[in-house]
Design a protein around this nucleic acid. Structure first.
Lengths: 124, 124
DNA sequence: CATGATACATACTTTAGGGTAAGTACTTGT
DNA sequence: ACAAGTACTTACCCTAAAGTATGTATCATG
């Protein structure tokens, strides 16, 4: 999964940041452009791999599974594969994943306020 | 500020994501490893440039101002420079910046719950 | 018998983010 | 005269994230 170099300053700093700031901990798990979108779609309900693909046409298949695998590894989503022969794989939110709903909602609310200029400065 | 290529798929996708998902809008503004840390420190109160530097020793000066400039451009923080001659520059949260507090708090709360295993799976 | 649908995997390349290190301008202290 | 503190700026390089383009296995359908 694009193996990372252990001996880089970036990784050292990441570790530090993780201890120092819980926000970084979250960013580490839902950061990147596609993860929040995927979670957003899964909040609406369980979805098959192909459903997600169609729901988010801009994401490449590589990015989609890569992010799904990472989210699964971080216990944010649950993958269930039925042993059928046109494969049938469903992704759903785990307990931890559902726990992110307030975060995503707070973000969404802030975003709309900021876009609407409710914080001033932009509309003044 | 590390000029970006307009004609890249990444940028196209960013624009799409911004429309589709408010969470991405937030990520676009407070994403990256240092921004949330900086905001975190500024929530505790206004700080001088050098105070921030000392508070976050791991961040390089380049990253620090770069992020401060971006946060300022996004109207999340306010820069105030006293026209003194050892320069005296203070950074504080704007209204929009303070509006992020619930987001950061929701994240922090989730992070602690996840670390403590309150979502299960990790302790079980 | 070849195409399409399913859910991936893998190699190869580009791009943006981040790191290192040095320099600027101006003043105070020694 | 020189170092140190202030708040930056700039140039160069490396790494990780993301994109492009393929290939895999299985079965159903035309």
């Amino acid at each position: 999964m694009t193996a990372i170099k252990e001996s880089s300053t970036i990784q050292e700093n990441k570790k530090y940041a993780l201890d120092q700031c819980p926000v970084i901990y979250v960013m580490d798990k839902i950061g990147g452009y596609w993860k929040p979108i995927i979670l957003f779609h899964l909040i609406q309900g369980d979805k098959r791999y192909s459903e997600l693909k169609r729901a988010i046409p801009q994401v490449s298949e590589k990015m989609l599974i890569q992010n799904l695998k990472q989210l699964e590894a971080d216990d944010l989503i649950i993958r269930e594969a039925k042993p059928e022969v046109p494969p049938y794989v469903t992704y759903s939110l785990s307990k931890a994943g559902r726990g992110l709903q307030p975060v995503l909602e707070a973000m969404a609310s802030w975003a709309f306020n900021d876009i609407d200029g409710n914080f001033g400065r932009r509309v003044s």
